[in-house]
């Protein structure tokens, strides 16, 4: 801890980042409850949660870096990992739901495209 003003600055910054992260996570989970069908729900957690986690992790990265006086990059590994895996798990869950023919809310545009995509062959195990 070197300078009083920098400490106060990082305090505000860390508090802000942590709160932003938590509110994004809250909104994402609220979307999970509120949105009408599976495919719209798929958007909520995969997006809001990655930024929520990202902001929280950057907050704690700054906090520990200032506290210990050295750069503390562990947290960055977790965020990078989550940013890499979030689209993959979203893709896999979306694909599973598509081939299980989950219903979509009325008013969804181009439902025919989804039906066409769901007819894709080669998913069943070869006997």
């Amino acid at each position: 801890m070197s300078d009083l003003t920098t400490v106060a600055m990082t305090d505000y910054l860390v508090a802000l980042l942590v709160l932003i992260g938590a509110s994004f996570m809250l909104i994402g989970s609220w979307g999970l409850v509120k949105l009408p069908d599976f495919f719209t729900r798929l958007h909520a957690p995969t997006k809001a949660s990655t930024l929520g986690i990202g902001a929280t992790l950057i907050g704690s990265l700054i906090w520990f870096s200032v506290q210990q006086g050295s750069v503390h990059i562990h947290e960055l590994v977790i965020s990078i990992f989550l940013f890499l895996t979030a689209p993959v798990s979203a893709y896999m869950m979306g694909k599973a739901a598509l081939h299980r023919h989950r219903p979509m809310i009325t008013g969804t545009k181009n439902v025919k495209l989804a039906e066409k995509a769901a007819r894709r062959e080669g998913l069943k195990k070869p006997d």
Partner: peptide
């Protein structure tokens, strides 16, 4: 490309066409 689309505004890529000719994307607000 599919991962980028999933991470950005209101779009999730869900399935590739069998011959890789197109990518089916679900859009939250089209």
């Amino acid at each position: 490309l599919a991962s980028s689309i999933s991470l950005t505004p209101g779009t999730v890529s869900v399935e590739f066409a069998e011959d890789m000719s197109c990518l089916y994307i679900h859009v939250l607000h089209l």
